[in-house]
Simulated scan of single mutants.
Amino acid sequence: MTPHAPPTAQNLVISGWAVSSPYGLGRDQFTTGLHGHHRAVTPLDTTAWPVPYTEAGLIPGFDIKTVLGRKGTRSMDRVTAIAATTVGMLLQEYGTNLTSAPEDTGLVLGTSGSVQSIMDFTRDALTGQAPYLVDPARFPNTVMNCPTGHSAIRHTLKGPNVTVSGGATTGLLALNYASRLLRGGHATTLLAGAAEEFSVQRARLEHVADHGGHSPEPLGEGAALFLLENAATADAGHRTVLATVLGCRFRAFQHTGHAATVLGECIDDILTSTGHTAHDIALIAPGTPPGILGKEETAALDGLDAPRLPLRPLIGDTTAATAAFQLAATLATAADRPELTGRLALVTALDRDGTTGAALLRLGN
């Protein structure tokens, strides 16, 4: 392993990012759409997508074989393709000196897996002439860590390979897991983020899920990946520090009405442990879930006087990729506003299954 000292809470940095979103492939499309407050949720072709929704935030024109080629994509599902594409974009721009030591570079990806792949494979086993007469090449798609493993193999990443899942908090869980791996000296560089796909089966399940009395929102898809390393490694690779990860906190709540209190505890804890106060926060990227959870998040943030980034109404409910997109929006905003350099940004997330989380970043060098 490359002889760099493990990062501390003061020098664990984000030095690059890539995104595949309903605005298109790449940071430029995402940043332009975000800054223009353009709504990327568009009408659905119900012939191609027989779902109980009339609109969704799809990656425009995303076709697996067109984007990744035919080699190795015959049985690839959508979420794996989205993850592999985004990892590839990140490495293409920043990774010229990462893959020279692939055992030092790993991937921590948050995902819900592909419910479409799971249900399709199960259907084939039940409706075929025999349960074992299924396409074995499609079985890996039913395992939640398929997008992570395939992305690492495709792009020759031989360091730690981890999959995490936690609903809307998934992106922050991946960021925290990667931070722990780096601080423990298990890798020199990690790609961390989250991915989500739009599919017929996901749409049908989400439509009948309990949304706390609120109508289901349009669904979105995409991925956001971030390059994490210590400041010295970033400097040696001639990469600019975009943000310093000061820490993450997570808690669980049993009743929705307690979510504000629990999220408030996460925020208070992370501020206290890093020696900051609420007045130091200059930018907030909330999850803005619908219904009661959204009100609880607003209540938890009421005492914070900082502008907020409204992303979810623009790209839809991206579920596992939600918090990763919020982090991407934070970096995109900071790049356009130099006055935020050195200031703090807060990313928050709440999931209807009872988890909440917060991440605190110092923007810029």
Rank of each mutant, 00 (worst) to 15 (best):
A300K: 02
R239F: 03
S15K: 04
L309K: 02
I284F: 06
L311E: 03
A328S: 04
G357L: 08
G24T: 13
G193F: 01
S215F: 08
T256K: 05
L98V: 10
I270L: 15
R78S: 02
T8E: 10
G69L: 02
A335T: 13
F198R: 10
S20R: 04
S199N: 11
V134I: 15
P102L: 06
A5H: 11
H258T: 14
T73E: 00
A137V: 00
P7W: 06
T333V: 13
N141K: 11
A323V: 02
A48V: 05
A209L: 08
D336C: 13
I292T: 15
A152H: 05
P60W: 06
G95R: 07
A178C: 07
A282F: 08
A195Q: 00
T42L: 13
D305K: 13
H238K: 15
S112D: 11
A282M: 03
V245F: 12
A130R: 15
G364H: 07
A224F: 08
L331H: 11
K71T: 11
A335H: 11
V19L: 09
T322C: 14
I315Q: 03
I270K: 04
V87Y: 04
T318N: 09
H207D: 01
D63G: 05
L331G: 05
G212Y: 09
G33A: 10
A335C: 01
D302W: 08
D336R: 15
S273L: 14
Q326S: 14
Q326W: 01
T122S: 14
E196G: 05
H186D: 14
P52C: 09
T163Q: 07
F139G: 00
T54L: 12
R138D: 02
Q29L: 14
E93C: 07
T188K: 00
R180I: 04
R78L: 06
E221D: 02
D305L: 14
E339K: 12
H155V: 08
L12E: 12
E229D: 10
E93V: 12
Q116A: 11
T348G: 07
T261N: 12
Q201M: 15
G213Y: 04
A323D: 00
P50Y: 13
L346W: 10
L133W: 13
L91W: 05
A192Y: 05
A83G: 01
A224L: 07
R183W: 01
Y23K: 01
A178V: 12
A358F: 05
L346Q: 06
I118R: 09
R27D: 12
T156G: 04
S179F: 07
L283H: 05
V41L: 05
L12T: 09
I153E: 02
G95K: 02
A234W: 03
L314I: 09
A329R: 03
